[in-house]
Nucleic acid binder design. Structure first.
Lengths: 232, 232
DNA sequence: CCAAAAGTGTTTACCATACACCCATGG
DNA sequence: CCATGGGTGTATGGTAAACACTTTTGG
């Protein structure tokens, strides 16, 4: 970095992007994995990934790769970690920058992802074998998601625009693999004043539950200082 | 990542490591920067950095670079973020993986660092001009240090083996740029039972203060779940 | 003897937790 | 009419924060 002459004869390196894509279907927390058939030489489930192009920065590349698989644009995307162990990719020395994405599973275009042989796996029923160090990436992503969700209100990113409190609670229970008291949960969530109660009910149960949406104004100002959900 | 044939003809990229090195001298929080003279073509203060070698992984490279500058081994080192904007390095497309280090400033070998024209800067009196996106790296590192220190007991990494409670308090006040009530502070710290009181006093004040050291056993088991120091 | 820094306890307010009953409706 | 899931209030315990005086000793 310091010496201009040092730029010459430096070994270059392949740079890949890999994305851990989280989705929530109302029940459990899921991760989207892809598989190339045996014809490609790789018959293992793996994260969606791709190479860094000279014309894009890291986040743009991660965005593009996510779009290629899901058809989704402008979703929550956050850099996770750079992986660079020597043997992590046996074919060539590769540094992989991993990102994790939170998507609303309803928006996801299964037609597009069909061409990639994509499949949603529950976070605790992942395939035994994953490509390279992708298992490590996923474990780290889950840890970071919990960490982040305990302090910041990012859970909404996984839900549709309108959702109910019980729906939100199920999400948090899926993230933290625990259960919460519903009275305490709704009090805690509502005390943030981040939710707007709508005059609609979702009637998937007999009584039906009120729908809420995020108060975008407050949400954007509120990326910091949230509630402590669980003991980290 | 997925298609074997895709490995060929992929543009490779230079991979650099840059380290934000934090130190504490009993007064303020400092960052170590280096400067190559005008002869090298770079007359700007910058972070200590270097290239990734084919024989080492990312963390090993960051370790090596830190050692080259400070003579220190096995210090607290944590990956911060990968920076890859297209124009971040005008000479060549470079992805930089940044690490932040916490060192005990007393251990630091100023002879070694002299050859690199190194200098400690207080975090709020940094040079106006820094190389590339190093300013951004530093800002992110400070933010992450605060975030981490608020939840985990990593502050000790910046102190000598033996230290006093008032010394520790000054450190936390420097990290968070605020002041704490000393009664609440010492109660909070001691309630973790992470500190061992020694039978020595440091007599830099008139009365003198008791020295403590970290209970390594408990500290290592305790990387998680600490106290909330400040509102994040 | 006095200035300077170390050390120590108590009260208060808030917040997290635990806990149980009524409501609305579809079947 | 009853089973299912939605919605709400209160009492308690623990912890963070505010607050002031005594101790030690070098100068």
């Amino acid at each position: 970095m310091l010496d201009l002459s040092s730029y010459e004869h430096q070994p270059k390196c392949l740079v890949a992007l890999d994305s851990i894509i989280f989705g929530f279907d109302g029940d459990g927390l899921k991760i989207l994995l892809v598989k190339r058939g045996p014809d490609s030489g790789i018959d293992t489930w793996s994260l969606m990934g791709g190479w860094l192009n000279p014309t894009e920065n890291l986040e743009q590349a991660a965005d593009r790769i996510l779009f290629e698989l899901t058809g989704l644009n402008s979703v929550y995307l956050e850099q996770l970690y750079a992986f660079g162990d020597i043997g992590r990719d046996p074919i060539a020395r590769t540094v992989a920058v991993s990102y994790f994405a939170l998507i609303n599973i309803e928006d996801y275009d299964s037609k597009i992802s069909h061409t990639y042989h994509a499949h949603w796996f529950p976070v605790n029923q992942l395939p035994d074998q994953l490509l390279f160090d992708h298992r490590q990436m996923i474990d780290l992503a889950i840890e970071k998601l919990r960490y982040k969700a305990a302090l910041h209100p990012i859970g909404f990113e996984l839900l549709p625009e309108k959702f109910t409190i019980p729906h939100l609670q199920k999400l948090y229970e899926a993230i933290f693999q625990t259960s919460f008291d519903k009275r305490n949960f709704s009090r805690k969530i509502l005390s943030t004043h981040l939710l707007l109660k709508l005059n609609e009910k979702q009637k998937s149960s007999k009584k039906g539950a009120f729908l809420y949406k995020v108060d975008q104004q407050k949400y954007e100002a509120h990326t910091h200082s949230f509630l402590n959900f669980v003991q980290l």
